[in-house]
Design a protein around this nucleic acid. Structure first.
Length: 496
RNA sequence: GGUUCUGUGGCCGAGUGGCUAGGCAAAGCUCUGCAAAAGCUUCUACACCGGUUCGAAUCCGGUCGGAACCUCCA
């Protein structure tokens, strides 16, 4: 079956074919590193991570470009003629680049925690001022931008006359809300729909670069156009980002790139939905963000406990990337338990063995398993339905547990099917969905000590010295280690 | 006001017109020195009103909620 992707540009699911066979170019809008990443930021990066992983699994060599926005853009369209990064820097008494570095490092740390594969190229906006200037000059020479008082604006009206401005977002220029607020620089524009390509910098502005129109800094949208073009070409396969970027950011990107390169930039536009808190988008404007550092440490009033990064990743994977997810501490707790159940089944599965060439004695069971496994690829192919992939893995869990407990005989299924199950868990859970067993990583160093305690407890049990055996179990529980007696007299343990 | 979405059982959430998604929680049973885990079973819902259809959670129209965007945003 072939991969189908919902293309925001056409508003329908399309069969994915890459422009160059075997290769995929993917650009994803990265973070603005003027502050700490919050839970909302985790969603696009986890989403495009499993998209990247799945495309790789399908055999594509993917060039994944994700930018770092380290050049400030206007806080309120230049209301104070200072950019975001600079404003915060003054507040914190830091150099702008020091601030940018700090939050970039934190972002990278969070991405590692969430087990996101590093992009192939991570270009910074400040490192591509030249490319942005070149692009602006090209747009001016094509006649689609004009300079006023050292700033350059894109002429949306002119573009819209012979291009489909608003196709991506469904916007009609004349229907855009009239802004009541007096915005600085607004009177410079020929039309309210025009957007800035270059802004003239006031003298107190720290981040500034020389340009043919005087000292200034780039507009909000041009960096993505410039960097995507530089690393992926005039036309590339996938452009991704949050739904909230559709307008005006992506719409403007399309306009700029189309004029410059005489080609619409991306073939497929993929947009992930938002994470909400009490039904409202998590975002700066609502003052309801939970930082990732707070999530992992449990230090936020809305949290009842700390949450492992993998719990957060799983929480995101449990719903489709185009649906909103509402955050709550309970929902995360539910995810935590669910994920644990899945890992335990997977760990058991690894230990089940069957002789080579074993044939199935329960053909119905055999067929059920094979059907569930074949569903995995079909679900991923259907616009990355990670929730359904997980549902099928969960349906395999009781089968695995039953084999372990002896409710289902080991020879009920064939050796080939057992092998297929093992491979599928490894590929889907770990390689594609990008989950990893945090508990087993943490517990590796304890193996020897635990084996000793288990041996002592076994001896106690054999002598029916339940006081000792209960004491060991109880004390371990106090240390966050759960000890389980199994049917065959063996014991297993997991971290709480 | 406009554009784009959306409304599913106690909670979270998949759902391509007919076939119980899944998870969490709850209850009962089995296993067990006790416990935990596990297995089995139960809880079967689609905002409202019309329409199309043999058949609608799914398609169409309307009503009422909710969200995102139109301003920095993942």
């Amino acid at each position: 079956m072939s991969l189908k992707i919902y293309n925001s540009y056409s508003r329908q699911k399309e069969t994915f074919t890459s422009i160059t066979p075997g290769l995929v170019g993917m650009y994803v809008c990265g973070p603005t590193v003027s502050g700490e990443s919050h839970l909302g930021h985790a969603r696009p990066y986890v989403t495009f991570d499993f998209i990247y992983r799945y495309l790789s699994y399908k055999g594509y060599k993917v060039r994944y470009v994700r930018n770092i926005t380290d050049a400030g853009h206007f806080e309120e369209e230049g209301k104070l003629a200072e950019d975001k990064v600079t404003a915060k820097a003054l507040l914190e008494k830091l150099e702008p680049m020091e601030l940018v570095q700090k939050y970039t490092n934190l972002f990278h740390w969070a991405m590692l925690e969430l087990n996101c594969v590093e992009p192939s190229i991570e270009p910074t906006a400040t490192g591509h001022i030249v490319e942005q200037l070149n692009m602006i000059e090209k747009i001016i020479s094509e006649g689609y931008a004009y300079e006023v008082n050292g700033s350059v604006y894109f002429d949306v009206k002119k573009y819209a006359a012979n291009h489909d401005y608003g196709k991506l977002s469904g916007r009609i220029i004349d229907d855009l809300l009239e802004t009541t607020r007096e915005l600085d620089g607004q009177e410079e524009k020929r039309d309210k729909a025009d957007f800035a390509l270059w802004k003239s910098a006031a003298p107190e502005h720290i981040m500034r670069w020389k340009s043919p129109w005087g000292d200034g800094y780039p507009g909000w949208h041009i960096e993505c156009s410039a960097m995507a073009t530089k690393y992926l070409g005039a036309e590339f396969d996938i452009h991704g980002g949050g739904m909230d970027l559709q307008f005006p950011h992506h719409e403007s990107e399309i306009a700029q790139s189309t004029i410059c390169n005489h080609h619409t930039p991306a073939k497929y536009w993929i947009h992930n939905n938002m994470i909400t808190v009490n039904g409202r988008k998590m975002g700066k404007s609502y003052n309801n963000q939970i930082k990732l550092t707070e999530m992992f440490a449990g230090t936020h009033p809305l949290l009842t406990q700390a949450f492992d990064p993998m719990t957060i990743r799983f929480f995101i994977l449990q719903s489709h990337y185009r649906s909103p997810i509402d955050f709550s501490s309970e929902a995360l707790q539910s995810s935590e338990k669910a994920l644990k159940r899945l890992w335990e089944a997977y760990e058991l599965l690894k230990k089940i063995t069957a002789p080579d060439g074993q044939l199935a004695t329960d053909l119905a069971m055999e067929e059920k398993i094979v059907t569930l496994i074949h569903g995995l690829e079909n679900f991923m192919d259907d616009d990355f339905s990670t929730a359904k992939v997980l549902a099928n893995l969960f349906e395999l869990a009781p089968i695995i547990n039953s084999i372990k407990d002896g409710h289902i005989a080991v020879n009920a299924i064939s050796a080939n099917t057992l092998q297929l199950m093992k491979e599928s868990f490894s590929i889907y859970l770990e390689d594609i969905l990008g989950l990893r067993n945090s508990a087993s990583i943490k517990s590796n160093g304890l193996n020897g000590v635990m084996q000793l305690l288990i041996d002592i407890r076994k001896e106690a049990k054999e002598k029916k010295d339940y006081a000792t055996s209960d004491k060991i179990r109880k004390q371990l529980l106090a240390q966050g280690i759960i000890l389980k007696d199994e049917k065959d007299g063996n014991m297993s343990w997991t971290l709480e």
